[in-house]
Design a protein around this nucleic acid. Sequence first.
DNA 1: TTCTATGCAAAGACTTTGCATGCTG
DNA 2: CAGCATGCAAAGTCTTTGCATAGAA
Lengths: 135, 135
Amino acid sequence: MSRKDILEKLKQHGVMPTAQRIEVAAVLLSRPQHLSADQIIDKLKSRRSRVSKATVYNTLKLFSEQGIVKELSVDSSRKFYDSTTHSHHHFYHVDSGELSDIPGSQISISGVPPLPNGTEQESVEVLIRVRSKSK
Amino acid sequence: MSRKDILEKLKQHGVMPTAQRIEVAAVLLSRPQHLSADQIIDKLKSRRSRVSKATVYNTLKLFSEQGIVKELSVDSSRKFYDSTTHSHHHFYHVDSGELSDIPGSQISISGVPPLPNGTEQESVEVLIRVRSKSK
DNA sequence: TTCTATGCAAAGACTTTGCATGCTG
DNA sequence: CAGCATGCAAAGTCTTTGCATAGAA
């Protein structure tokens, strides 16, 4: 995703494209991936971008509110931010803490009972936890 | 679940049944439910049990390691502990923060692609997020 | 100028840990 | 007595907030 695409995307979502936001977007949106705030801060450091911790957190919050990224709660010790925003499912490697998309969208779920009264569906997420083969 | 059942269950899982552990188990295992550490501490208070915060956290950690309860990561701001340990799925009410079991086990998932190389499956979890009907 | 963004440090929520005391076998 | 459990407070993580400064419209 080029700088121009990033500018475009921020604009589309009503986010003023400041230098720091562009840096954060460049790191996270560069390819389909799942990063924690901390990992993003590290990547910014190795790029020699100086964006404060607070701004990174604030920016990620803003991005997820505006639908630029998707916030994932897979491990309750930290949030992950997913550069892919459309509905999809994940593998979670419990040993490495890495998340990956379940490829294709061939997963389907059947036999879902009615939702609780007075509620409507917001999303359906499948998480398959995997571990290194013990063998 | 009676006091006797609780004693039995702790023993089965190799956990020494101390007074505090029995109190925590009595609260959490009383019925199928999903509670955060904080909610458990509150319930203990209203029962006039005096179990320290640290002990509640340590006990919940021990219980989940020993398979007496199941730790859930649904909301990255806190952990939930589920008194039902067999594999099942959840509704998460995003407005109230409440979790509920998806009744029956009629859910089935098809079209799951092969797992990443060198990994084996640990669990599959379906989480359906719901919100109050806006209507 | 006027409004919003940024950065730092402080504050906060949740959880874990260190260590002295207490209970158990 | 030896060993593990408990409780308190302190420390730790991750995240948010307050506020003064800096930048954009």
